[in-house]
Each structure stands twice: as structure tokens, then as C-alpha cells.
Design a protein around this nucleic acid. Structure first.
Length: 238
DNA sequence: CGCCAGGTGGGAT
DNA sequence: ATCCCACATGGC
């Protein structure tokens, strides 16, 4: 079974890269006007948790098919303009929102997506963990596909759902664990049936896959740098 | 310059 | 159901 291979892969990635600590809200430290946590001094503490959670939701949309650094800049723009709550995102004129998140790419589409997603979370308690939306409800929102829905559930609401992305497919494909034509849910089922349903584990595991895909299992793989055992793709090339 | 980046929706087949 | 394409910016 692939369960052992997925368990071993996790241990190897963790040993290789160390804990990743996703979803860290990106640090704005050093930027003018921000304190060491990226917030202006004296911000209302009680709202920080909701803001932080909503920022994770926002980040999940902004990073769609986009380098995280570009999404992070857009998040910084929203933060510096105090557009940090669902109501504030919804109330911002769409064109202005788009210009603020320009660095994330697809900014016109993403501005629209953000306002739709924001609308779902407007209202008291809407961001509380016990009020987490269902996966089906998220998938019903225009602009939210399976990866974004799962990223929101896992990283914002701590639900044990494994996030499948292009990196996951590439890595597992090269390891010989995927044929290549499996759909999203089938790949996810591989993880769900092989591992304990633990949101901390899934959080760290997905982050480790991304890190490994960035430094070794790249589009052009650096197999010489990669000690992962049993990978089928340690080809002669490169 | 070309390729790649933590996808998704819509339209054609 | 499954391909194909538009959507867009920034880093290397």
C-alpha cells in the first residue's frame, strides 16, 4: 500500500526541511508604519483573531496559480489600507480592490472572487471555528474550487482535509504513486486513507510538499539535491 | 526573452 | 465528462 510510502515521505520531508509553520501570516516586519507583527500599534486585540483568519481566507484566493510572494504583497496592501474584514472587502469598490491586489495577478477576477467569498463571512461569528462552512458550500462560491476550499478549511478553520495542488501531483507523480490522470478527489483520498485525519499533520505535510517542490522537485527537477527514497524519477538527465 | 508560480470558470466537444 | 483557453503579474 501507499500508506507506508506517504508516512515515510512525511518523515523524510520533515527531516529535510524542518517544520514550515504554515499558514504563517506573512510578516510585514520592517515595513514603515508596522510593528513587528505587521500591525499598526494599538490595534484592537479582540479583532485580531478574526482578521488573521480572514487573511488566511483572502490569501487562499490571492495565491491561486500565483507565487506566494506576489499574493503576499497584495495582502500587505490590503492590510496597510485597513481592508481586513469581510465587510470592508465587500464595501470596497471592485475596481479599487483590483488595483490594490494587482501584484497577485488575475487581479480583476480575484477582486470579484474576494468580494464573493467575503460576503459569505460577513456577520457576527461568521469566522468562528464552530461556524466553519461546509466544503460543498465553499465550492458553490464563484471563484472557489477544490484546492481553495480545502485550503480555507484546513488553514483557516483547522479541518483535517488534505490540500492537493500542482506540487503534490508533481511530487507523487514522480514518485510513481500517481498515474497522472487521477482527479482531485482521488488524489486527496490517497492521503485521507493513508494518514491520521489530523489537521496539524495535514497542514505541515502540505507545506513540506510545497517547500520540497520549490527547492528540489521543481518543474525541472534537481534530483541530485533530493534524497527522498524510492523516487521513480531519479532520471539520468539533469 | 521564456518559463514558472500553492487554480478556476466557461465554452466547445 | 473532458479538453482547451482566458485570466495577469513578478522573479529568475
Amino acid at each position: 500500500m501507499s500508506a507506508e510510502r506517504l508516512e515515510r515521505l512525511y518523515r523524510e520531508l520533515l527531516g529535510l526541511h524542518g517544520p514550515q509553520g504554515w499558514w504563517p501570516i506573512p510578516s510585514m516586519a520592517g515595513r514603515p508604519g508596522f510593528d513587528e507583527r505587521g500591525y499598526h500599534p494599538g490595534e484592537f486585540q479582540a479583532l485580531q483573531k478574526d482578521r488573521s483568519r480572514f487573511e488566511v481566507v483572502t490569501g487562499a484566493v490571492l495565491t491561486q496559480n500565483t507565487a506566494w510572494t506576489n499574493a503576499e504583497k497584495a495582502l500587505g496592501e490590503l492590510r496597510s489600507r485597513r481592508i481586513q474584514t469581510p465587510a470592508q472587502v465587500r464595501a470596497t469598490e471592485t475596481g479599487r480592490l483590483a488595483s490594490l491586489i494587482r501584484s497577485s495577478g488575475y487581479h480583476n477576477q480575484k477582486a470579484r472572487k474576494l468580494q464573493i467569498v467575503a460576503s459569505r463571512f460577513v456577520g457576527r461569528g461568521a469566522l468562528k471555528e464552530q461556524h466553519a462552512p461546509s466544503r460543498e458550500e465553499l465550492l458553490g462560491l464563484w471563484g472557489v474550487g477544490p484546492e481553495t476550499a480545502d485550503a480555507i478549511l484546513l488553514y483557516a478553520f483547522r479541518k483535517p482535509v488534505f490540500v492537493i495542488d500542482a506540487y503534490t501531483r508533481r511530487l507523487l507523480g514522480r514518485m510513481g504513486l500517481l498515474a497522472g490522470n487521477e482527479g482531485y478527489d482521488a488524489v486527496q483520498a490517497l492521503f485521507h486513507s493513508s494518514l491520521p485525519l489530523d489537521h496539524v499533520l495535514f497542514n505541515e505535510y502540505h507545506a513540506l510538499i510545497v517547500q520540497h517542490a520549490k527547492v528540489a522537485c521543481r518543474a525541472r527537477p534537481l534530483c541530485g539535491e533530493c534524497p527522498i527514497s524510492g523516487c521513480a524519477s531519479r532520471n539520468p538527465g539533469t
